[in-house]
Amino acid sequence: MKKGEIHLKKFIIITTALTMIFLSIFLFFGPENPKLISSNYTVFAERVLYWGTQGQDVKTVQDKLSRWGFYDGKADGIYGARTYRAVRKFQAKHGLKVDGVVGLATARALGLPHAVGATASGGVNRSADEYLLARAIHGEARGEPYVGKVAVAAVVLNRTRSSSFPNTIAGVIYQPLAFTAVADGQINLTPNMDSIKAARDALNGWDPTYGCLYYWNPATATSKWIWSRKVTLKIGKHWFGI
């Protein structure tokens, strides 16, 4: 009788434990609870940030500033004295108006996409293109010399103007199987200052490739077809061709 009771107790404990584990695992990993991976990358500086403001956008600014060595405090989302000084330092270094306020120009220099208020031009600008292009450069050509980065961006832009490619920057970048950095998700890394600068230079017309539509790394290229392209220039690890 006693022995049976113990067995029953054990049985109940184990079943309860199992059920609990089962349930908790379901809740954590359940398909109805997918993690929003992309939320890290789409933070928009939609408002002007200054001393005293708080929020996720402040945190992003702090994060960027500390990555570039302007800010040494904690990324706590509170715009305090340290953030203020860091922003001023950043502005001075980039030839912006030194006022310690993250407005349109500073947000752009920080590489944050932003929504413009209701002006006459109604939010028509180039910042989205700039940011996307910068991410593509960062994913594809991080380790390349500066001219190589601009060249990669120029190829993307040349493709938008070519008849045999999609006609938008996003269309070209996200064309299936076109860029390895897109396929393996490296495109979602936060671009660094150099990549943003290179994107701007390319959008402003600098094309070191003289109209090239292709580039590949001869050491790692997997497509046999790419070797049928005509090479015109070699920059860093990449070959550029038409």
Partner: peptide, 16 residues
């Protein structure tokens, strides 16, 4: 920079 074989076919054949 090393030029490719087909450098003369680029839009503006040039030395970089």
């Amino acid at each position: 920079f090393e030029a490719g074989e087909h450098v003369d076919e680029s839009r503006i054949p040039a030395y970089t």
